[in-house]
């Protein structure tokens, strides 16, 4: 009885439609993962680009993030939405990469960097002050702004992605936004 209650609580099926794709992939349908990849590529790229700032590093990070998901999808416990789980991995992985970014940059030869240019991106805005102001922020602040302004997640979704409460996410977002405003005004003056 108890185990049945526990199981029902733990494995309550989510109505997240991504779950169907996840189940199909775990049932050996490789196309299901391609669908997930296409659905979330831009959002994950936005997170990686927002945190890492560098286009090439961001594309590299996206490939790594999806490879991690591809290999570890059986560990997804379905207690949260698939997108939340994916964004949490994306944020943590990108911040982890941002911390070691300088070392990696030094290790990559210049010629190799030119051989593998970043894929073309379409950026509607050419405001150079945005990138400059973002570069002056902490990667965690950049992650918050990215999730809110680029991926347009709700505060609860941001909280789930960052593994904190909604109130904490709100406070942190407001602080990050204010710091961004200060940096933006500073660089644009």
């Amino acid at each position: 009885m108890l185990s049945a209650t526990y199981d029902s609580q733990r494995f309550t099926p989510s109505f997240d439609e991504d779950i169907i794709l996840v189940e199909r992939f775990l049932g050996n349908d490789q196309e299901a993962f391609q669908t997930l990849y296409e659905r979330y590529h831009d959002k994950v790229l936005a997170i990686a680009r927002g945190i890492l700032l560098d286009a090439e590093e961001a594309h590299d990070a996206v490939q790594e993030i999806f490879t991690l998901v591809f290999r570890n999808l059986h560990r997804f416990d379905r207690r949260s939405k698939f997108s939340t789980w994916l964004f949490r991995i994306a944020v943590n992985r990108s911040i982890q990469q941002a911390r070691t970014g300088k070392i990696r940059k030094l290790q990559v030869p210049l010629a190799e960097a030119f051989e593998h240019p970043a894929p073309e991106e379409s950026e509607s805005s050419a405001d150079p002050f945005i990138a400059e102001a973002m570069a002056k922020l902490h990667p965690a602040d950049r992650a918050l702004l990215t999730l809110f302004y680029w991926d347009e997640l709700s505060l609860q979704e941001i909280a789930d992605s960052l593994d904190c409460s909604a109130n904490a996410a709100k406070t942190r977002l407001f602080r990050a936004r204010e710091r961004f405003r200060q940096q933006y005004e500073e660089v644009s003056e």
């Binding site: 993962f33 391609q34 990849y37 296409e38 590529h41 831009d42 790229l45 936005a46 680009r49 286009a55 961001a58 594309h59 490939q63 790594e64 999806f66 490879t67 991690l68 591809f70 290999r71 570890n72 991995i89 943590n92 992985r93 894929p119 073309e120 991106e121 379409s122 950026e123 509607s124 805005s125 405001d127 002050f129 945005i130 990138a131 702004l145 302004y149 680029w150 961004f180």
Partner: peptide, 23 residues
Amino acid sequence: NLKGAKPSAKVDRFVPKAEVVPY
């Protein structure tokens, strides 16, 4: 401008990377 700075790229077919730094 911040919202407009969101990057987007052409999505290719997913190919898992051979080597991934452990998460």
